[in-house]
Design a protein around this nucleic acid. Structure first.
Lengths: 233, 233
DNA sequence: AGAAAAACGGAGTGCGCTACTCCGGTTAGA
DNA sequence: TCTAACCGGAGTAGCGCACTCCGTTTTTCT
């Protein structure tokens, strides 16, 4: 990511990024990235950098020594996540059956999105990593377009949907996934199945739906969510 | 709503709520409710009571004179919204065709939910009106259960879903609805159609999908959302 | 080993934001 | 006309969090 605005020289982010970090610094950098991924995935972007530092076992100062600000850290994580999903799309494209390729991609991508609240926050309205979104879109869109076109050509997928419908449906489902992540990490699959049953051209009977104690789970999930918001106990 | 915890006597909320308000006070109360409904629906519960007051054309003091705190105002609005949806469910139950009844209910309920961000905030994790949720659930659940059971009995609705699936699917869709409310207030209908195509027992071809310039709209919607979050311009 | 450079920790700071209060002025209604 | 009820909105209090600063520790180089 090239710095598009000449950032005022931060004392501890020298103009020679080539010089390798000291061993302990590099170790800490890795610990920070891992911890941040964990914390932001679990709590979303409102998580404090203090929390991230604590999870990484370092001080906040150390975090700020590696990343100029919260946004930079989040942007780095976001780029990683985008990479991963872009790779999934490519991998899917190499599958023989075009319907299974599409389904496989959706399942894999959603597995990531549903367990990553931070990802949702970036996509949906946070102020973080705003300028990385466009790049992510460019990166992923064409692959999805391809998967969709093939599934339609082969007569599996209804022809009145377009590539752009898929990110939307993914957002819908991953929203639910985030909500129920703690109570029932796989509940979203139930609704993906229903949605897929709505996306095939025709069918004579429903696909099998994974069973869940739905009523109970919803109660649990919302309760957990309310506790989360209350920020204590 | 009975006050379940003996609230310390607020000077301006006397113990005789029977005494009618003065004419201007009553007028203002109505203006506040209307403005609050509007503002919270549009912006969600993070909207300030200052904003509500401004929209109502009164001072903040006036708002606090009628409602002990923000939570009370929100709770009152929430109860209204729940009433409305409960009535929809009852009305739906009186329709002759059980499938059309279910579809009608979903469309009407979602129309409300999709244009009301505050409603979502209450349901999903806000700290406001927490204790009103249980009541709302009791109020609405049985009616939905009935609509579902009938549609299943008549062979329209797949039998592996349960009543509790519907609030979940509604949440999924209304999440999207809130997101795209400004850019394309009806986009959610597209995905409801697909979902419904996944909920019928069988079908030989897809239902007609309302057409949208989806790619463009998503871009718009997310952009708008990011601006909203930035809180300026 | 010893010195210089690099990195560390985490208490502290500043700031923005918002729920709520307070009181001098205004209005309804008898 | 008189007073109790009501109004407005500037001000307050307090929190939460991004970020800084500096005394201390660790690495690395000769």
């Amino acid at each position: 990511m090239t710095s598009q605005s000449e950032r005022p020289e931060h004392p501890e982010h020298p103009e020679h990024p080539e010089r390798p970090l000291r061993a302990d610094a590099e170790r800490n950098r890795a610990k920070i990235m891992a911890a941040a991924a964990q914390v932001f995935a679990a709590q979303g972007l409102e998580a404090t950098l203090d929390e991230v530092a604590a999870a990484a076992g370092v001080g906040v100062g150390t975090v700020y020594r590696r990343f100029p600000d919260k946004d930079a850290l989040i942007a780095a994580l976001f780029d990683n996540a985008v990479d991963e999903i872009a790779n999934l799309a490519h991998a899917a494209a190499r599958r023989p059956n075009s319907w299974e390729a599409l389904v496989w991609f959706l399942e894999e991508a959603l597995q990531r999105q549903c367990s990553n609240r931070g990802l949702r926050d970036v996509v949906v309205g946070s102020t973080y990593a705003v300028d990385h979104m466009a790049h992510a879109k460019q990166r992923i869109t064409p692959s999805i377009e391809l998967l969709v076109a093939r599934a339609q050509r082969d007569g599996y997928l209804r022809t009145d949907v377009v590539g752009a419908d898929f990110p939307i449906m993914e957002m819908m489902i991953s929203f639910l996934g985030n909500l129920t992540a703690s109570a029932a990490p796989d509940l979203w699959r139930r609704y993906l199945t229903i949605l897929l049953d709505g996306l095939v051209v025709s069918r004579s009977q429903p696909s099998v739906l994974q069973d869940f104690p739905v009523d109970h789970l919803v109660h649990e999930a919302l309760h957990a969510e309310h506790r989360r918001a209350r920020r204590a106990i």
